[in-house]
Design a protein around this nucleic acid. Structure first.
Length: 290
DNA sequence: GGAATCATGTGAT
DNA sequence: ATCACATGATTCC
């Protein structure tokens, strides 16, 4: 099969594909040692093997088997080793003024001033909405300056999820307005629309250190990965790898700021705020697009 | 080898 | 001050 034209087929009306897919991913990664057959997995999930195969491939652009390979330690190490090109070398100064191509979807970013950060979102109006995505239902948050937050719901955790996000800017005012967020959602999850004509505007609300880390993440191209300590070096604090981990984990705009491309030094997937399974899913999904 | 243990920077309390 | 971390390197068995 060839290029999956990331049409809405990827994005089912109720995001139910992801729920199936995520369970497949779980099963595969938990038991990859005994190489479970497609039939066995399908049996566990109460699906027909062919149906499952089809759903999965439509979603990822990869067969379950190829997917498993793509999130293997081996592959992750390869992603890391490709470190040759400028990658993070490209100076920050260059990226900071005016629109520039950071990330595969074109992104311009803007950081909140320290004062705005200290006010913890005071005086800020944040509009939010829920939209289907390849990784489950996405919670999208925007300000008039651009995209401020992106999170993913697990079924049943919606409330905790919202509070997690809203709690980051306790003094902001939140208004449900999915009309305002819909265009962002559509744009983000259709790789077709990752083009330069109208860059995606995001606004980073965070401490100085966090913003430096998130900027570094934006420079990781699709299908590549870096380690936490790489990032630490690039922001000029080689011993701060652990702090980097904490900052990465605090990134409010998951996926757009590709926090899923940060791996442990040995290539192992370490943690992910929205669940390790989802991190694997994202990496596999990208492998299918690349 | 693999578990236990440190050194470590940041941000929240 | 103190604590929890999406880390990483070192040191024991």
């Amino acid at each position: 099969m060839n290029i999956t034209t990331s049409v809405p087929a990827d994005i089912t009306p109720h995001g139910s594909d992801y729920e199936i897919v995520s369970r497949v991913v779980e099963l595969l990664t938990e038991n990859y040692r005994d190489q479970p057959s497609l039939d066995a997995i399908a049996g566990d999930l109460g699906q027909s093997p062919t149906q499952l195969q089809k759903t999965f491939t439509r979603w990822a652009g990869l067969s379950p088997k190829a997917f498993l390979q793509a999130v293997t330690l081996d592959h992750a190490k390869r992603l890391l080793r490709q470190e040759e090109m400028p990658l993070l070398e490209t100076s920050f100064e260059l990226g900071l003024s005016g629109p520039s191509r950071l990330h595969d979807l074109f992104v311009t970013h803007e950081a909140m001033s320290p004062g705005e950060w200290k006010s913890r979102g005071g005086g800020l109006t944040i509009r939010y909405g829920y939209h289907p995505s390849p990784f489950g239902v996405a919670l999208v948050m925007v300000t008039d300056r651009g995209l401020a937050g992106l999170a993913f719901n697990d079924p049943g955790k919606e409330k905790a999820n919202f509070e997690d996000m809203a709690g980051r800017w306790p003094n902001a005012q939140f208004v449900e307005d999915s009309a305002a967020t819909a265009s962002y959602a559509a744009r983000i999850f259709n790789s077709d629309q990752w083009c330069a004509d109208e860059p995606l505007r995001i606004v980073m609300i965070g401490s100085d250190f966090q913003i430096r880390v998130w900027e570094a993440l934006l420079k990781i191209p699709m299908g590549r990965a870096v380690t936490y300590s790489d990032i630490a070096c690039k922001i000029g604090q080689p011993t701060a790898s652990r702090a980097v981990g904490a900052a990465v984990g605090r990134n409010p705009i998951s996926f757009v700021v590709p926090c899923h491309r940060a791996l442990g030094k040995g290539g192992a997937l370490t943690g992910y705020h929205w669940g390790l399974t989802r991190k694997r899913a994202m990496l596999g999904w990208e492998a299918g697009k690349a």
